[in-house]
Amino acid sequence: MAIYFYSTREEYGCFSNFSAHGFELDGVYWPTSEHYFQAQKFVGTPHVEQIRQVKTPKDAATMGRDRTRPLRPDWNDVKDDIMRQAVLRKFETHADIREVLVSTGDEPIVENSPIDYYWGCGADGSGKNMLGQVLMETREILRDRT
């Protein structure tokens, strides 16, 4: 049976990039994996720090999607690996949610986003579910370490 998540208030809310599980990466502290992911779109510019410092992951997402900011030219080539890095560090940092992720066994994990057909499954389930894929890869890495 697949495990669906979307809202941080649900049972598997810790799988969301909006969950309040901060971590250190690239020598600085990130409040959420959403902050880190969105900021990486603008590496080498002041936008990185602006996004890192905003109060909520929703604000970070809004800023990251703002196309008046200069999106790095290689973004489509690097975004999956950046997400992998952020998600792995988040679960490495927090033992409680690491346990939740590993406890899902071999169940498929699906970001039940009605609007995102890349990171989520989309409204009709036809999306790529890349965040779910990244979480399942992370689960394997963490399980192999124990």
Rank of each mutant, 00 (worst) to 15 (best):
N76R: 11
G105M: 05
R84L: 09
F23G: 02
R84Q: 12
Y12G: 05
Y117I: 05
R98D: 05
S126H: 15
K79I: 10
V87W: 04
G22F: 01
G64Y: 02
T56G: 07
R145F: 05
K128I: 02
G127A: 04
P70V: 12
M83G: 04
Y6H: 14
E49F: 01
Q50G: 04
P114Y: 10
V28T: 15
T62I: 13
F23R: 06
R98S: 08
L71E: 14
T62H: 14
V48S: 11
S126Q: 15
D74F: 03
P57I: 03
C14M: 09
P46Q: 08
F37E: 06
Q50T: 13
F23A: 10
T93Q: 15
T93F: 11
G13N: 00
W75D: 00
F91P: 00
E11L: 10
G13R: 00
Y12T: 02
V134G: 07
S33W: 06
D66I: 09
F18H: 08
M1Q: 15
E111K: 06
L25I: 03
Y36S: 09
T93G: 08
H47R: 14
S103F: 00
W119E: 10
E10N: 13
N129P: 10
Q40S: 12
I82S: 04
D144K: 15
G27C: 11
T68E: 12
L135V: 08
L131E: 03
F37Q: 07
T68A: 11
I51V: 04
A123G: 14
V102F: 09
T93P: 03
M130T: 15
W75H: 06
P70E: 12
Q85L: 13
R52T: 01
S16I: 05
E10C: 06
Q38V: 06
M83H: 02
A123C: 08
V110C: 01
F15G: 01
S126N: 10
M136T: 04
K41D: 01
D106I: 10
F37W: 05
F18I: 00
A95H: 14
E49S: 01
A61F: 13
L88N: 09
W30V: 07
V43W: 15
L131G: 07
E34A: 09
E99T: 13
V54Y: 01
P73N: 11
A86L: 03
V78L: 09
V48K: 09
H35P: 03
P57L: 04
V102C: 06
L142G: 14
D116S: 07
H35G: 04
D26C: 07
D96M: 04
T32H: 08
V134M: 00
E10Q: 14
